[in-house]
Every structure is written in structure tokens, then in C-alpha cells.
Design a protein around this nucleic acid. Sequence first.
RNA 1: GCACCUGUAGCUCAGCGGCUAGAGCGGGCGCUCGAUAGGCGCCGGGUCGGAGGUCCGAGUCCUCCCGGGUGCACCA
Length: 949
Amino acid sequence: MDSKVDYKATLNLPKTDFPMAGNLARREPEILAEWQKQGIYERVLKAHERDPVFVLHDGPPYANGHIHYGHILNKILKDLVVKSRTMEGHRVPYVPGWDCHGLPIELAVDRELGPKKAGMSKAEVRRECDAYARRFMASQREEFQRLGVFGDWERPYLTLDHSYEESVVRALATFARDGYLYRGKKPVYWCAHCRTALAEAEVEYQDHASPSIYVRFPLEGDPAEIDPALAGARASVVIWTTTPWTLPTNLAVVLHPTFVYVAVPVALADGTEHLPEYLIVAKELAHRFLAACHLTSDPSGWIELPPEKSALLRGRRYQNPVGRTPKEPDFRVGFAAHVTLAQGTGLVHTAPGHGMEDYLYGQEHGLDVYAPVDDAGCYTADVPRWQGRNVHEVNTDIVSALHASGHLLSDPKDTITHSYPHCWRCKQPIVFRATPQWFIALDHAGLRKRSLEEIDRTRWIPPWGRNRIFGMIEHRVDWCLSRQRVWGVPIPCFYCDDCGATLVDAHVMEHVAEIFAESGSSAWFDRPAEALLPPGTRCQCGSQKLRKEEDIVDVWFESGVSWAAVCEGRKDHGVPVDLYLEGSDQHRGWFHSALLTGVGTRDRAPYKAVLTHGFVLDEQGRPYSKTEIEKARREGRTIEYLPPEEIIKKQGAELLRLWVASEDYRNDVVYSQNILDQLGESYRKIRNTVRFVLGNLFDFDPAKHAVAVADLQPLDRYFMGKLGRLCDRLRTAYEEYEFHLVFRALIDYCAVDLSAYYFDILKDRLYCDAPTAATRRSAQTVLYETARSLATLMAPIFAFTAEDVWRHLPRRKGDPESVHQARFSAPPDVPAGELEEEMPVLERLREATQKALEEFRAQKNKTIDAHVWLTLPMAEHLVAVKHEEALADYLVVARVDLQVGDERRTLVRRAEAERCPRCWKRVVARDGDLCPRCAAATTPARAPGGTTG
RNA sequence: GCACCUGUAGCUCAGCGGCUAGAGCGGGCGCUCGAUAGGCGCCGGGUCGGAGGUCCGAGUCCUCCCGGGUGCACCA
């Protein structure tokens, strides 16, 4: 009989039910079901009932489609915050929300309804939208929960909730009351065929041939004031445009303040002019311009107008032959930085009612938002010459008229093919047209300035977020609140049918808010105006014939007030909340709208800190999102996209949690199957390390067997101290939201400190000592604390696995059922001793020995059979001698002999002593003898062969 | 076009003015078979995106360029 087999049965080998394989795809749903059953979210909150509150307010994802990796990154990050802050000792309520109104849903519903929609009322369409939003909310909710994210999933907030809509209207009322809300005009995409405003998403770009014309506008006054050389001459500013129909709406010609212009003398083709004619264009574009117009001019006669001279053009009047009624020819030259030299003449025809930049320029310079074009895309009575004519059709007429009057410089038949916006539905070219809209005035009551101040009172993580949002708020234009759509919260204003006045009244709005609280915003569409107004409401003209506003409010305003709608009402919340956490695009979005609504209605930012993360990219650095994949597909590129559902089905959600935790979210994060597989390796390393610990605690009861710190074996004490420092580091990293450092430190600790080092040494004591030996209990005490600490510290990231670890851990009195109800474990303090200074020396010896042993092992030897001679310099020798007794165990070799030398040398031989058949240490004199330790461990009850019969 | 962010081994990250730039994982090789779909050891692998500059000294500070991302603008 081979005695080895027998002795194996006398060892204290690890025993545990904690499986080696995670089997996460199967195990996670079981854990989720248990959490669900025990109401884990409420339980966790309950466990922290008396702790200080920390509120992470959820930014609502859009209730459309399935979740993608961006959602996963965001939600898991939030969950890491919630779980880590909880375990650090806070009460952390988390109420998930959904953004339910807005265009994408409305469009999706349009598509589902098809032609049916034509016969439906607004209210009916809205009911379809409502159902659609709820459907996707429900599916996303399941998908988020599957990730192990804790939250109040039973009572999420939806922006279509009655109480939420009420809050939106109340916020509007506050803005109205304090005078921020006004009605103005702003250019929007407009489809004349469908007679509707279009959102960005509804616009398609197609190639389109447009007229390309150069037009001169004669300057009034004496050009000699600009340059004496122009004395007695005539001068014109020259513009280029592809939309002749906008010329009647021209209100300005704009130059760039730093470009050099030239006045180019030409002889015009019609020969009617007697005086020399100078055409003013940007110097850099002069040749191109002349060529395009088939004009010639000797450059020697050009008069250069450097910025200081062209500046004299500022405010100068010019004539526009097709411009606004000749009675008020107040066209003036101006300057702006948006002028470019890419095309044209370096002088920009500006029509504030029909172009965004033109509009902004007009706003700055007090120009009218002049848009004499009606819903059908036809000129109004303001343009008598072409009244009632469609602007696209009238283009050729306008070109002819300019040609006839001698103002057209180019060939009337010139065209240019470029991409031009078309209506996504009817495919007709669209126009840019100013229509009346509702705005919030940024500079009313210092809203902008106070918002900027609030930005500096907020903590931005990472810090550059501050600059980003600061610049945006600093430069943004007034907030256009209205949308010509049906799926949203109506703007609760009215119009007087008799005098046309607008009724913007905070009291009326508050009244509407109450109706919405009761019946939802659908009431606006279901009920007549009288039923929505407080009884007896009249226009200031005395009329009671009031008409409802048709526009709805921008969805960013809706989500922007979530802090009010969701957080203010809850007793465990409180505004400002501790943290907003979203993708960096939300500087322009939610962080922005929340800031403005917060400052506008409560005079403060609704958050104390804002954390942003980057985007998810694939391995090639391209955005990894469904829309991006689809786009690529359309363009004939292929990008592989495995939807997260499939990953979860195959590998579970835990790996996705590790992915989120392992990446530095401040940058863009890369997702790929390869990365996930790598994480799988790390996962297994950690899992097995923990499994080893659990296995060696099978006979350990902390209440009975724990050894006091002072009585621990030196190495154990050292590792208890190391553990304490690890815990401190990890908690700080959690606190600072540096999850990837937590992950890194966990891996490194498990792989390097524990598995390859501590445990390697410990195995002998754990397996071979008598079960109750003080030396073994000492090791188990540290293992136990290690397991506790790992289980709790890994719990925010390894939400599922940590739960299983916790369940397999010997219980201590008062331990909660779930690890998520526990706090981060703090191992006992270890007073700093001289060991802390000596260990690095020993560790160097260990490393050197291992290298030296490599050759020994290559000759089919076991390191446990090695006899090592260490020649050490005095400093190292002194330390080594001090620990001479333990050194062989520490290096996991048979025997170590020390001597002093000039430099470190290692010599390895096979040990001469015989092997103890139980512990394999070469310490016995005679083959077959047990070493004293093993002899003691096996007597009397566990004599060799005794257990196997 | 403008602004901001970003670029260290195959992958994920450390390193934040000073020894021949590190770790984990992956890879290669070997050992073990008492953590075994595991454990241990060793090895190879980087002109720190590029070019200038400041400095006794730069992955680390400055400037420019290149690649990637985001936002804005343009395209209208």
C-alpha cells in the first residue's frame, strides 16, 4: 500500500461548496430572484436608516429601444457609487427614471401607425406614444435589473407621470412669474409641403442644384470716406448666395473684422455706368470671384482695404434692389467672426429670418427677425412683388430681376450642386424660416451670470467638466423652449382671439399644473380652453375668447427639472443632491438644463457634484453603439455588434460590471469580446483565490478560534497589516470614484500578494499542522479577515460573486444575510513593528531564490527538495539570520544555510535529509519516518492507515 | 473650422521632474499534481503617438503636428 495516499487523508485540505466555476449565466438569475424575494433594495436602505443620506439622482435614459453598452456603462457606474457609498456607511436611495416624451417616440409611433395616423386626434396619437414609452421603459427596466443594479425599480420616475408634468408646468410658471419667459422668433427647419417645422432628426441631406449668384449692392454716400482713392467713384459690396429667394429678406451685409478686402475697378457689361465701378470683395477671393463672373480687372488698379480701412464700412448703408420695401432701406454693413473665405466673396448676405448665423448676428445687432414667408413657403404681403409665390419657384424670377437691373454680376444660369436639406417624409427641399417660439431669457435677472457662479460652486469630476459647461453657458443664446409637436407637455399659454395678445400668467399656469397633477397633460388636448383656465379669466382687452397654445415644451426642460419633480418631494432626498453622473455629452444636455432650471427657479444648482464618463468605443476606436453600427452598415462598412443581451445570456452580467469597473471612465472606454475574455481570466483568478480562502476556513469559527493580533505568527501579522492597508486604499479609491484602481488593487492583491506569495507559504501550515494548532489558527484568523474584507470590498463591483462568497463565509454574530447590507470590513489594527521594515529584505531574498531555483526545477526537481545556500551582504544577512528558523518555510524549500559575502549569491543543491511522507519536507533522518510535527498531528486518533482501515 | 478631452507592452491600467519605464492578464517555456477546467516559477515583449523646446535631468512641464473621441459651428 502506498503510504502517500493514506497520509493525504490526514491532511486538512480545503473543503468548500463554493464552486470553482462561476457559472454566472445560470447563477446570477438565482441570486437576482432571491434579492427580489427579500426586497434587497428596501433592506439595504433599512440597514442604513440612521446613516447620513447620499443622493445620486438618476438621469433618465430615453424610453426607446433596448439598452446598449453606453447605458450599461452609465448604470453600472451609478450602481458602483450607490453600493460603495452604502457600504461606506450612507443611506443611498436610488430612484431610476425615464425620459418618456419627445420626438423619437413620436416618430416611432408615426411609423407604427402608418396612414392610420391621419385620421387620429392629437389626444389619440398621444395615447399611442404613452403606451410605446411604457413598453420600452418596462423592457429597459428588466435589462437594467439584470445587471444587478439596485434601485427603487417598483417606483421609478417617468417624465410622463402626472406629478412630473405638474412639476414641469410649475417650473414654467416660476419662469413666467419672474419674467424670463417670452415669445420671440427664431429660424427653424420648415417643410412647406408638409407645412410643419422639422427637427434635426427629420432632415435628410441630398444633392441639389441651386442657383449660384454674385450680386452687388451699391453703397450709399461718398466712398472717398473709406479710401481717398475712391473719390468720385461708385462702389458696391458684393455677396454670393445659393438662395436668391432670401435676398428680399436681406437686412445686412457682413464682413470679417480681420480680413483684407479690395476694391476692384471693373467695367460692367451693360455699359450703362459712366463712373468707374469698384466692387468690394475679400482680397483672397478676388480672383476667383472675377473668374466666376467673367470679369477682368488689372490688379494694379485695385485699392487694398486692410482691416483699419474696411472698418470704415461699418454701419454704411447700401441698396438692395429686391430688398425690403424701398421706404425703409436701412441696410447696413456690419462685421462678424463667422464670415469665412471658403466660398463666395468674404461678404455675407445676411437674412436674420432665414439663417441661423444670420439670426444670431441679428440678435446681437438688434435686427428684426424678418421672415415674410408663410407656412406654405410663399411670400407674404410684405413682399408685394412676389406675394403668394413659392420661394423655391421664385428663385429664377429674382435672378432675372437682378440681371435686368444690372446688379447680378454672374451668369444667371450658373448653378452649384451641393447637399441641401430635404424633408425626410416628402423629400422636398426645405427652407429655413423664423417662426414664433417661446424662450427663456438667459440674461434676464442675471440668470447666465448666476449660473456661471453656481458652476464654480459645483465639484466637476473630472475637473475639466467645469470649463466645458462654463463655456457653453457663457456663450449660449436664449433657450428656445417650444416645439411644434404633440408628444410632450404643452406650454400652458393662451392667445386672445380678439386682440391677439398672449396670455403668459403664472397663476393660470399654476391652475393648469393642478389639472395636470390630477389628469395629466392630456387634459390640455382633451379639454377646451375654458376648462383649463381659472374661472373668469380674461384677456387684458376684456375678451374671454382665449385659444390654447399648440406648442409643447422642449424635452430638455422636462428632464432638466427632474430634481424638482423627483427629489424635492421625497423626504430622504433633498436638493441640491450629492451627485449627477452621466456621459460627457450631458454638459450640453441634462447638466445644462438642470443648472438653468435650478438657478432660474431656486437660485442654485441642483447638484453638489457632477461626474462624467466617456463614450464606449470598439477596438478600432469607433463609437460602439447600435446607431453607429447601423450607420456603418448603411455605408457598407461592417462592424460586429453583439447585443449585450447575448453576452449576458452566455457569460452573465458580472463580467460587464468588471468591464465598467476596470476601465478609466474619464476617457472613452473600449469594449470588445477580447477585453471581456481577458476580464474573465481576472475574474477566475480572484474567484479561485477567494475559493482557496473559503476552503481553508471549513473548520474555523471566528468566535471560538480567532487568534488575537498580538499572538499571530509574524508572517500572519504582517499580512493582517497589509490587509488593513489594502482596505484603506480601496475605500479611498471608492470614495474618489476611482473604481479602476479598486479593481486593479483587488487583482494585484489576490494574484501577487495572496496567491503567489502568502498562500504558497501558508499551505504547509494549513494542511499539515494539527487542525487546532495555534499556528494553523493564526493563519486561519488572517484568512478569515481576508475573506471578509475581500467579500465586502469587492461587493460593489462583483455584486453577484461577493454575495456567494459572503454566504460561504463563517458567520460572525450580527452579520446580515446579504453582503450588500454589510459595511466595508475593517480588519483589526496591527501596530507597526520592525517586521514591516524587514519584510522587504526577505521578499528580495525570496525573489532571488526563486530565480535560482529555476534551474533546479528544470532538472525535474521540486523546490521543496532544495537546499539553498544564501551568501548575503551584511545588511541582508542580519535580517535573514534573525528569521533563520522560519526561512526554509518562507522560501518553501527544504533547508536554508546563511553566510556573509560581498554580494548576494544563491546556491541550490538537493537536500540530503529524507522526506517526511506526510508533509514532504526533507527534515527526517530515515525514510518513512514522520517529522515530529506530523507525528503529533496524526496521533493518536489519526495514525497512518487508521482512517483508511 | 473652433473648443475640450485623449494617445505608456497584444489587452486593461500604474507612473504626476530624478536609479537600466512598472503591474496584472494574455503569449512562450518549464515545474507541480495535497486550490486541479487549479497552483508555482522563469522568459520574451515598449524609440512612453511624432517633432521641437525648457531643464544638470522629461513618459512626466511648454509649443507645434498627427491619430482617436465628444461638443459646437459650417454645409443651408
